[in-house]
Design a protein around this nucleic acid. Structure first.
Length: 477
RNA sequence: GCUCCGAUGGUGUAGUCCGGUCAAGCAUUUCGGCCUUUCGAGCCGACGACUCGGGUUCAAAUCCCGGUCGGAGCACCA
């Protein structure tokens, strides 16, 4: 039997129980702009909504006033738009507080939730022993009174919580009677001090997943326990559970992603902003020249397995190179330039294709006068033994004699020579910011001045160029 | 410690549900060759993996049991 060649492209597995359409969501906390890690859940959800049709909800989970950066409300939708993620509905949780209160009242009435006045430590200890706290048996009427009193501001932080009754003998202590609301008196960037009794993520998520009609939930497996907790809310209300998927954690090496670290760095001036090229934010990656399509391809290939994995910049860059290369004009960038003199008697014309693979992109052309001097990278020139020959790409072959190049031939000789790049007189200062925080300074050929976008600096790498400024951001080799 | 989850080359994946077509495919990396006036692209080739031990079976990457290793969560973050 002949083996059928498998399709090269990776395809995400089909979802279970898909009806006419799906409703899915992304639920970032607004602690800052999106980063590389967030792009995974965004792409995954978006892919499925595109496959099956339906809605994709962006739900901003801003129920912890202490962990909000207002920039996120605007930047997250922009990040998603850049990624090509088609959000059909935006929901901001801080605008839904009354909904959460109503759902809480329902659970209090049905005896599934109680107000607890235990100190944090006390409550924890009892739970570990599988013992009920003294407030667990309060009547719904008592609980309701307390609840309304808390909402009106009758208690201070740490003195009261709303707890969901689960199972005190559950093998996992964190799932035993979990806290659904707690008091926070920090002003909220959007609602100020209007509310002080905030739902915990497990409560608001369960309520919203139901009310928004979620059919499928895809998220990281760090939420595995949370899913267990949220199921109680669905049970008590007799709501239909969405299908859950939990993908494994991705370790992204050599990349700063933690918003707390980034924020601190921005404040103390170490980073220039959220788009500092040393960071793993989408803003920074965009600035360096990554294509949105690269993210999509990468995360589709990674799939939804629960296994933890290592993010591979090699593979990511390789995918990006494939996308970006065809539109990347070639230029010469000479790092730490040194001048060498040629002994040509007549002027030389150098005509170099902008893209050797795509002939109709044209040429860049420079005239090198007689006995001209040009610039080369000392790393190339100094490694060449005196008397040896080298090829100046698209210019001529030369023999090294000290710091002069004796022109051997204008047409490339038969001999196989090392080929190096160079820059003519009139080249412009150019500086490249690299993601490791270093910079490469040098010069680039004159025609770079009108170029914008991703260029390939030959033998150096891909760089997102702002020609008129003489700066560029290193993308990858 | 407790609860849950997982294990295919350096990395990422395919195959595992329904055992045989898998002496394991693809991509990436590294190395070599061809081509080429880039160390890019393209082409060819090489290295490199089923965590271990038992069991079931004519047959196991695939099913079962155990060990090991790794990961996540562990309570007023999301």
């Amino acid at each position: 039997m002949v083996r059928v060649t498998k399709k090269q492209e990776h395809r995400l597995p089909d979802l279970r129980n898909v009806g006419k359409h799906v409703v899915m969501r992304m639920a970032p906390s607004p602690s800052g702009p999106l980063h590389l890690g967030h792009s995974r859940m965004s792409i995954l959800n978006d892919e499925y909504v595109k496959r099956y049709g339906g809605d994709l909800v962006l739900r901003i989970e801003d129920t912890n006033p202490e962990n909000i950066d207002p920039i996120a409300y605007d930047q997250i939708p922009m990040d998603l738009q850049w990624l090509g993620v088609n959000v059909t509905q935006v929901v901001i949780q801080s605008e839904r507080m009354d909904i959460y209160y109503d759902e809480a009242r329902k659970l209090i009435n049905s005896g599934h939730a109680y107000i607890c006045f235990c100190k944090q430590e006390e409550f924890r200890k009892l739970k570990l022993k599988s013992e009920a706290c003294p407030h667990r048996d309060s009547s719904p009427v008592e609980n309701m009174e307390s609840f309304e009193k808390i909402i009106r501001g009758g208690f201070n932080r740490g003195n009261a919580t709303l707890v969901i009754k689960t199972d005190l003998n559950h093998p996992n202590p964190s799932i035993r009677d979990w806290i659904a609301f707690r008091i926070v008196d920090t002003p909220h960037p959007r609602t100020g001090l209007k509310y002080r009794f905030y739902p915990m993520m497990n409560f608001s998520v369960a309520v919203d997943d139901h009310l928004l009609g979620l059919t499928h939930v895809i998220r990281g497996k760090d939420h595995l326990n949370n899913t267990e907790k949220q199921k109680y809310i669905f049970d008590y209300n007799d709501w239909t559970l969405p299908e859950y998927y939990h993908y494994g954690l991705i370790n992204i090496p050599d990349t700063v992603l933690k918003t707390s670290i980034i924020k601190k760095g921005i404040v103390n001036g170490e980073y220039s902003g959220w788009d500092d090229v040393r960071l793993g934010t989408l803003m920074a990656l965009k600035k360096r020249g990554y294509a949105p399509e690269t993210f999509r391809r990468y995360w589709i290939e990674s799939g939804m397995k629960e296994i933890d994995a290592e993010f591979s910049w090699d593979i990511f860059n390789s995918m990006n190179r494939e996308i970006v290369d065809k539109n990347a004009s070639r230029f010469f960038f000479v790092k730490n330039p040194m001048e060498i003199r040629l002994n040509n008697e007549t002027a030389l014309i150098s005509k170099i294709p902008y893209h050797p693979g795509i002939p109709d992109t044209g040429f860049r052309e420079y005239e090198i006068g007689s006995n001209a001097s040009i610039f080369v990278d000392p790393a190339d020139w100094n490694n060449l033994d005196d008397g040896k020959s080298i090829r100046l790409k698209d210019l001529c072959d030369v023999q090294k004699i000290g710091n002069t190049g004796k022109v051997l031939s204008i047409k490339p000789g038969k001999e196989k020579l090392k080929i190096i790049h160079w820059a003519p007189q009139g080249s412009l200062k150019f500086i490249i910011f690299r993601p490791d925080g270093t910079t490469d300074k040098g010069i680039s050929e004159p025609l770079i001045s009108s170029y914008r976008g991703i260029a390939q600096f030959e033998r150096y790498g891909y760089v997102n160029v702002e020609g008129e400024k003489g700066t560029g951001y290193f993308l990858h080799k």
